[in-house]
Design a protein around this nucleic acid. Structure first.
Length: 269
DNA sequence: TGATATGTTATCTT
DNA sequence: CAAGATAACATATC
């Protein structure tokens, strides 16, 4: 599913592809997935494409913005040149003079919203710090983890605490940091907190480097319809029954608050 | 056929 | 009341 590295990959592609281009039409095929007035967007130029948490933000020349969340199965696919036929899962088509951008979403959980500056700020206000920026420090992480005894993995997934981590990267980060996903957050020692902060940044950067992950059951694609390759480097995700690369212990799968959780019971304490 | 997977939010429980 | 847990959403796949 698109998490921070996948959304960042899409952001980079689209920022260089659509910035400076004028939107000439919007076709909404799934009404409940588009909020606000498409009228306010037509004829406007895209200034830039940005990312906050797992959201994409298209900044427009009239001060409005398109906020996009792909949820589990959303894709933004760039259609060069001639008019392409929408697929069964195409929900919105954004047209440019020579191109189209398809918003495809099999499961229909994703959405696009037209927002003004205030509405955008409000929509983004609840998110915690971006883990790849300076304000995400050992000090911040330590302070945040001290506040709760919920399992550490649950906290990694909490968008109000840290922005952008989803189930795949939470599993991979804890494997890298050698921390058991079930460990109560407030039991992490100073040394473990530092190790965790480093693992968060390292694993997310790895994900971005390989253009995100298109795992077996995933629908994630880059806007040019190519796949990411980070799935080749997974340490634990969907590897239950296989041997840990480090110690050869069999990787275990458990269910933690309804999410598939994978870890090495020997390496991760 | 029905269980499963997922991100986020609404709602229920402790 | 707050924190934490769980249900709900949609739909293809196994």
């Amino acid at each position: 599913m698109p998490e921070l590295p996948e959304v960042e990959t899409i952001k980079k592609y689209l920022d260089k592809t659509v910035s400076g281009k004028k939107i000439i039409g919007i076709k909404i095929l799934s009404k409940k997935q588009f909020a606000g007035q498409s009228k306010k967007v037509i004829g406007k130029k895209i200034l830039s494409v940005e990312r906050r948490a797992k959201n994409l933000i298209f900044k427009l020349s009239n001060g409005q913005a398109l906020l996009v969340h792909l949820k589990m199965s959303g894709q933004l696919l760039w259609q060069p040149g001639i008019l392409k036929t929408p697929t069964k899962s195409t929900r919105v088509i954004i047209s440019f003079v020579k191109n189209q951008l398809f918003f495809n979403d099999m499961r229909k959980f994703g959405w696009i919203k037209v927002l003004n500056k205030d509405q955008l700020d409000l929509a983004l206000a609840r998110f915690g710090p971006e883990p790849l920026t300076k304000n995400f420090s050992d000090n911040y992480l330590g302070k945040t983890l001290k506040q709760t005894r919920r399992a550490i993995k649950i906290i990694l997934l909490d968008q109000t605490k840290i922005a952008g981590i989803g189930n795949i990267y939470a599993n991979e980060i804890l494997a890298k940091a050698q921390i058991n996903p079930q460990k109560p957050a407030n039991q992490l020692k100073t040394q473990e907190i530092k190790k965790l902060r480093e693992a968060i940044q390292l694993v997310l950067k790895e994900g971005i480097k390989y253009n995100g992950s298109s795992a077996a059951d995933q629908l994630y694609l880059r806007p040019d319809s190519s796949s990411g390759s980070y799935q080749q480097y997974f340490r634990v995700y969907q590897k239950d029954g296989q041997k840990c690369q480090k110690c050869k212990t069999v990787i275990k799968r458990i269910n933690l608050s309804g999410r598939g959780t994978f870890f090495c019971p020997k390496c991760q304490k």
